[in-house]
Design a protein around this nucleic acid. Structure first.
Length: 216
DNA sequence: CGGTTTTGACCTGCGC
DNA sequence: GCGCAGGTCAAAACCG
């Protein structure tokens, strides 16, 4: 739990950034089906989203090592847990260093190598699930897709996005559950170092929910 | 033409 | 050590 920081708000004091709310929430806010916009739902925001996803959606977990789990305080998953997961959000999500100004990732990241002896530090991550027909939530930031992978036990691929703002290395992963095709799990990693680039009424609603229920 | 998406290859970590 | 799965890179294709 060392490095847990809010993920959605960019890390400045801009008014657009909602103040962090107390952490340690455990709320299963799943749907707002009465909402008419594209995201016909409020996000379910979790302090440890995968606790819920394990139970309900059987997703994987973040952080193998509780001490390095990017602030997600939870016991380590086993391989079998991950293997059984519904296209589990992998514990490999965390193989990046925490330097937001460093675009290169650390071990486990493609062709970039980490030097021997470098300590792996994991970025905090925040995942939430929404019930939506579209995969991409318009959260007001601009994202560039840099990869897509088929996920085990999930017929839907996982997409990888990076914030396009110069110097901002926030990433997100988007994955739809095969068990429940209406559910999209979005995992954010890192903290935006800049204001939201465009206002989105839709996402403001979501952010509002998140301010209430999560420190993410 | 510049930015974004697609996609195959590559790399790492982990379990067996 | 090997194989698998996840994460990233980067060239090519695509699009406005």
């Amino acid at each position: 739990m060392d490095n847990f920081t809010p993920l959605f708000p960019y890390n400045s004091s801009s008014p657009a950034s909602p103040p962090p709310v107390s952490s340690h929430l455990s709320l299963n806010l799943t749907t707002n089906n009465h909402n008419n916009n594209n995201y016909s739902h409020a996000p379910a925001v979790y302090d440890d989203p995968y606790d819920h996803l394990d139970d309900d959606q059987n997703l994987g977990l973040i952080g193998k090592n509780p001490d390095e789990s990017g602030g997600l305080d939870r016991v380590s998953p086993t391989t079998s847990e991950l293997g059984n997961s519904e296209g589990g959000i992998s514990d490999h999500l965390n193989n990046n260093n925490t330097n937001n100004s460093n675009g290169n990732s650390a071990s486990g990241s493609g062709k970039i190598h980490i030097k021997k002896g470098d300590k792996k530090i994991r970025k905090p991550k925040c995942a939430f699930q929404t019930r939506s027909q579209v995969d991409i939530l318009d959260d007001g930031y601009r994202w560039r897709k840099y990869g897509q992978k088929a996920v085990k036990n999930n017929k839907f691929p996982r997409s990888y996005y990076r914030c396009t703002y110069q110097g901002c290395n926030v990433k997100k992963q988007v994955q739809r559950l095969s068990k429940d095709e209406g559910v999209v799990v979005t995992t954010y990693e890192g903290t935006h170092s800049h204001p939201i680039e465009k206002s989105t009424d839709n996402f403001e609603h979501i952010l509002t929910q998140m301010q209430i229920y999560s420190s993410c």
